[in-house]
Design a binder for these strands. Structure first.
Lengths: 222, 222
DNA sequence: TGACACACGTTTGGATCCAAAATCTAGGCC
DNA sequence: GGCCTAGATTTTGGATCCAAACGTGTGTCA
């Protein structure tokens, strides 16, 4: 008979969907560095089996969001202050390269969209929204760069430091937001002028300053 | 005793072992860029089921050795000439950072080992052996750097370009090997003197020169 | 009372079976 | 004769079941 105890198949839950769910949870701050991720728990919550969860955890690992130890399970990536410092130094060197690769290929439409995102950043007051918009701004400036190894590297660096960036912005307050906006405006101007040298200069300075300010707040680290 | 016939399950065939096998095959040149990797084929060859193979492929993906497309399977990472060029530019920026992090922590024993490896490079005549020794030399200079996100990035960059490096060395011949050795000697000297500035200078130049020479050989790319 | 050892529960790793998607092949139609 | 379509085969994705490893808690012995 109908024997439909279990619905057809929901068209496959998909490890991609599980990965998206966990990625959102980690980047959104629901899962914090060092938190253990139990396969069965996630599987039950999403109504899937453990197998796509395992696949998803591997994907997240390659995105720098989780760490995996044999027979001990997966945890959200946790970093020391020194590690975050080095990651910012990596960003200082890599992202200007991505910008230089991207610059010549950005269209006028991209420039307009960048202008609009930056305006939204300046009008914004919400912390979580700032993290999203800031990421969107920078990624947009790199969107002309089609070199996958470079872009996935950059994404990894952003991913693994997202939590510390949130903590930092949360306590740093909006007092020095004008500095961020000035830097963004200078980067944006260099982008519109397609001036790679200036772009690298201001972008590098932007990341470097953030690294140094972050270094003054050891309290956000374990 | 001597009950080590073999069978004691070896504690499971292990996705780690499968990954090691495939890694060796790719870095050794048995699998070439663009080659498709069929799960069942590998599973059969190693006497395991397909599941650890799937896990292994995810690991390799996070190491930059394979690419994965849903429902289409895994392939050995294949790069265009421009992508390899950018990866070398990434190396020019990242590896000097790794060297600077590593330098202060290297011991006298490390210095002796470096000297010995470099001597083996100069005595060596075999192509495949050179690839291994060259990698060993550079990785040794970075071995004091314990920052995982940085070191796994560097490893990824080496992994994904290994095949093109082999092709390049194969046709470039040993005519300009003296340049490599001079650069290595200068890097080694800077390491022993613990001079990070000079180390970054010569290492950056070493990678840059290789990138430019590689750019003169479009025939190694598809 | 403290420390070591053993056993149990929990969690991850692996094997087999089944479903869905993609590729390949063959046949028909234009 | 070439191209498009439809079915068959191949290959990947997912679910369930079973085995192995880690962590913990308790019990016993010095």
């Amino acid at each position: 008979m109908s024997s439909d105890e279990t619905p057809p198949e929901t068209s496959g839950i998909g490890s991609t969907r599980v990965a998206a769910y966990l990625r959102e949870a980690i980047l959104g701050g629901d899962l914090r560095p060092g938190d253990r991720i139990r396969q069965e728990e996630v599987a039950a919550r999403l109504g899937a089996s453990r197998l796509p969860v395992r696949e998803a955890l591997r994907m997240l690992e390659s995105e720098g969001l989780t760490e995996h130890e044999p027979h001990k399970g997966a945890r959200v990536t946790s970093l020391t202050q020194h590690e975050v410092d080095v990651i910012y130094r990596m960003r200082e060197r890599l992202e200007p390269l991505a910008l230089t690769e991207s610059l010549p290929l950005l269209t006028d439409a991209d420039h307009e969209q960048l202008e609009e995102v930056q305006q939204r950043i300046e009008d914004n007051t919400d912390l979580e929204k700032f993290l999203d918009l800031d990421r969107e701004f920078h990624m947009l400036t790199y969107s002309g760069c089609s070199i996958d190894p470079l872009m996935s590297n950059v994404t990894r660096l952003w991913n693994s430091t997202q939590h510390y960036r949130r903590s930092f912005v949360a306590l740093g307050g909006r007092s020095r937001m004008w500095v961020v906006n000035s830097e963004h405006r200078l980067i944006l101007d260099a982008v519109v002028r397609r001036d790679a040298d200036d772009g690298e200069r201001y972008l590098g300075g932007h990341i470097r300053r953030t690294r140094i300010e972050l270094g003054r707040h050891p309290e956000v680290f374990p």
